[in-house]
Amino acid sequence: MTAILEVRDLVVGYNPTLPILHGVSLTVAAGEIVTILGPNGAGKSTLIKAVAGLLDITSGQIALMGSDLTGLPTHEMVRAGLGYVPQTENVFAKLSVEENLEIGALVNRAAYAARREFVFGLFNDLSRLRRLQAGKLSGGQRQMVAVGRALMADPKLLMLDEPSAGLSPKLAEVVFSQLRKICAAGVTILMVEQNARAALRVSDRAYILAQGENRLDGQAASLLDNPEVGELYLGAGSRLSR
């Protein structure tokens, strides 16, 4: 298996004197769905933002498909094959759904029509809603716009920060099952989730971060059964698989 993303000994924060991640490492192989879990404030979003080029990296390396991304400005990441859906403010609320998709395809304009078909195939509702302002949509619809927008550029790796946050359990299931389809279409996925059980069920592997450090990692199925993971999320003596 070839590594799509390789993060090694990453030290990064919002202020050079105050690192949030103290040497985190992670690998995502082609075709995988990998989830990053961990308590609030563990540094999960920080890790994803650092990969997306939004933070100044103190030390460590980030490589996408073997080429070094460290220090590349954010606006060049998408051309390097990286898609990113932030947790909040992840659509252009004043732009129409269609304009959001156009912005997503700015680096891939020749393939606009084909990509749009792919996105409408995944999220049928978007086709009907395409002339509406994204800000007028429901939370679930907006999340579809956000993911669809990121897919327009045909990324090799799609990073999602808490894609199910604020969605009903039923809608969250819909999003997770679409992630499987996206992955089957050749897009490797790295996501952050709070909803550990549902996320682990669609994932191949997972990493658990705590206080800016790697705590645990392994196959999703074995983490579901791991009492240490159960304790972290549900209290002593629990397991996520039940």
Binding site: H75, E89, F92, K94, E102, I103, L106
Partner: peptide
């Protein structure tokens, strides 16, 4: 125009604009 849409996108959310490959 593409540039016009990029401007509107940047006005609303510069970070998200950069994520989409717009050089702000």
């Amino acid at each position: 125009t593409t540039l016009g849409k990029s401007m509107r996108a940047t006005a609303e959310n510069p970070t998200l604009a950069q994520i989409n490959g717009i050089d702000t």
